[in-house]
Design a protein around this nucleic acid. Structure first.
Ligand SMILES: [Mn+2]
Ligand SMILES: [Mn+2]
Ligand SMILES: [Zn+2]
Ligand SMILES: [Zn+2]
Lengths: 140, 140
DNA sequence: TTTTTAATTTAGAATAGTTCTAATCCATTG
DNA sequence: CAATGGATTAGAACTATTCTAAATTAAAAA
């Protein structure tokens, strides 16, 4: 009786369809790795490695395509923290991050633990898309 | 009688020496472009372009080397906002940023306008290096 | 069920930003 | 001035990502 919510095949397939995408073998396999109920922060090549290890037949190009499509569909959130790579966050709720610079690893902050007070007016012609708070951590 | 503080050759040379670096033609030329009194957010290739345009004899490799050295010496601050490129901020004081995603451009927030309340305890073994707040803006 | 169609996947090339290498250059010191 | 060690450089290498164009496949049409 684990706490972990394992998504059913039907729900996963439905989620992909609702996003306007065909539930192909590749998307279902990647979706299963991503939406297994645990909040995750993966890079493209980490996810590709997991796919290879678990026998999901997919190319690296498709991993990139699928991550981009899932972000566009609002199923994933892209987080930029370190230079030169994107992290994909399976938790799309509004929250902030620790970034472990020595390990290139993202970690969620407990929600509400950081609050940004008094957001400034955005410059004319612009609107706020998102506010990102990244607390950069190094080994002591 | 401009408001702009133009740094003198002597002060610039001294600043580079204090950082433990030889005041070469390249470092002086780049330092003059960077520390002209105006707060700036430049990328490596923007700075390289300015150097070429103003006749500073320097290679792209040296621009990268110099930016890294200036950051290490605390003369510049590196800001990560968009994917795949670093911005170098001539304002090393503690402040946060707007990031115009449509233009790949950083802009300073007025100091004090955003305050991060109740910083969380960092995980054991880690210490906070910096807190970055980036307000992502898109064209309306 | 077969055929058709358009979306998807793929290998590999291309690209962008950055770092590395190793040869040359030059600022400083004696 | 000569010696020397750091600095500069062109170009190669590297990493993450996107692009291209051909092959595959899911879904719709027949
Ligand atoms: Mn990775
Ligand atoms: Mn640029
Ligand atoms: Zn997260
Ligand atoms: Zn700034």
């Amino acid at each position: 009786m684990g706490i972990e919510t394992v998504i059913s095949d039907e729900v996963l397939e439905q989620r992909i369809r609702v996003a306007g995408l065909k539930p192909t073998r590749q998307r279902l396999g990647l979706g299963r790795l991503l939406f297994n109920g645990i909040s995750r922060h993966v890079t493209a090549d980490e996810l590709f490695g997991e796919a290879v290890n678990t026998g999901v037949p997919v190319s690296l190009a498709t991993v990139y395509n699928t991550l981009r499509q899932f972000v566009d569909a609002g199923l994933l959130r892209e987080v930029l923290a370190g230079p030169g790579r994107s992290y994909f966050d399976t938790d799309i709720s509004h929250h902030h991050h620790f970034y472990h610079v020595d390990e290139n690893r993202l970690e969620d902050l407990p929600i509400g633990v950081v609050s940004v007070e008094s957001l400034p007016q955005p410059p004319t012609g612009s609107e706020i898309e998102r506010v990102d708070v990244v607390i950069r951590l190094r080994r002591q």
